[in-house]
């Protein structure tokens, strides 16, 4: 048993100091890695509470007078709220629209499958694998000609299309888990398809729909190809706002950190909440 070091189901090592020590070693390693991974984020959050001068002090200050200067400045100098509002609108809009299209489609495929259902699902997925950069030009030109450049509605449409395959797929797998019997019982009870979806399927699949929506929100919020290329100001979301800090017009670490912290905080919480469902969505169910 002494050779078994790194693997530690607790029940098997009630005794033995080697196991005990290995247990701690794993814990320490696990925490070290975790802190290292999280460190840049933590440092950024810390920096956001420094004044600009404290932020670039060398050696870096661990002790400082926390200030909300950075945050205040983000608010006053840049039109942060507009960008944040754009982020919210395009993310929520894209997600809501995708759900609107996807719920009936997933219902149809999950409960009334035909011989073509499997092919349809896989084809939908394959559209997700089209590299955006490959279709950047036509989309850009179409948007220009349709007057959709730098509009929220344009970005919402793109986000909806971008996420539709994932949303359909996730909903499909969640719907598949709703016992068919229950919908059939509804049918025996006289429910038509609308009743079936509204009174039975939606309430039953609500947790799945919610986590699908969450994933879509996260993907929209962090999307940084279309938002950088198709918006400039009026409809620009936070990704674009942060990108504007890349121009070398002076150093403003505190302000950058404050803006970044605000941009990532809400989505990080959502991400943590939905990490389990994320796996399903991101791998199209290929990993369980």
């Amino acid at each position: 048993m002494a050779t078994v070091i790194s693997d530690t189901p607790v029940k098997l090592r009630a005794s033995g100091t080697v196991g005990e020590r290995a247990h701690w070693a794993v814990g320490v390693l696990g925490w070290l890695v975790a802190l290292a991974m999280f460190f840049p984020i933590a440092w950024m959050v810390l920096t956001s509470f420094k004044s600009e001068t404290d932020a670039i002090a060398t050696p870096p200050l661990l002790l400082f007078h926390p200030t909300l200067e950075g945050y205040a400045e983000v608010q006053s100098r840049a039109n942060y709220l507009l960008f944040a509002l754009n982020s919210v609108i395009v993310s929520v809009g894209g997600t809501a629209l995708a759900l609107l299209f996807a719920v009936p489609a997933a219902y149809s495929m999950a409960f009334h499958p035909t011989r073509r259902t499997r092919g349809t699902l896989l084809w939908m997925l394959s559209t997700k694998m089209l590299p955006p950069v490959g279709v950047l030009i036509p989309i850009y030109l179409l948007f220009r000609n349709l007057g959709l450049l730098d509009t929220r509605i344009g970005l919402i449409a793109i986000y909806m299309l971008m996420n539709l395959p994932i949303v359909v797929w996730m909903l499909y797998t969640f719907f598949k888990e709703v016992p068919k019997d229950i919908l059939e019982a509804g049918r025996m009870d006289g429910a038509n398809q609308r009743d079936e979806i509204r009174h039975l399927l939606l309430p039953l699949a609500m947790p799945g729909i919610a986590s699908t929506g969450l994933l879509s929100l996260i993907l929209c919020w962090n999307e940084a190809f279309w938002s950088l290329n198709l918006t400039s100001h009026a409809a620009a979301p936070l990704t674009q706002f942060i990108a504007s800090f890349s121009s070398p017009e002076g150093l403003f670490f505190s302000k950058l950190s404050a803006a970044s912290t605000m941009a990532i905080a809400p989505i990080m919480v959502l991400g943590w909440i939905s990490q389990k469902q994320l796996v399903r969505g991101l791998t199209f169910g290929a990993v369980k």
């Binding site: 802190l35 950088l228 990704t239 950190s257 990490q275």
Partner: peptide, 24 residues
């Protein structure tokens, strides 16, 4: 610890890029 490890995935690309470029 697990939550901390997966956290970077939820950071928008422009933020992580600038954070690394400037702060690190």
């Amino acid at each position: 610890a697990r939550l901390l490890v997966i956290a970077p995935f939820f950071v928008m690309p422009t933020v992580s890029a600038l954070m690394w470029k400037n702060l690190m």
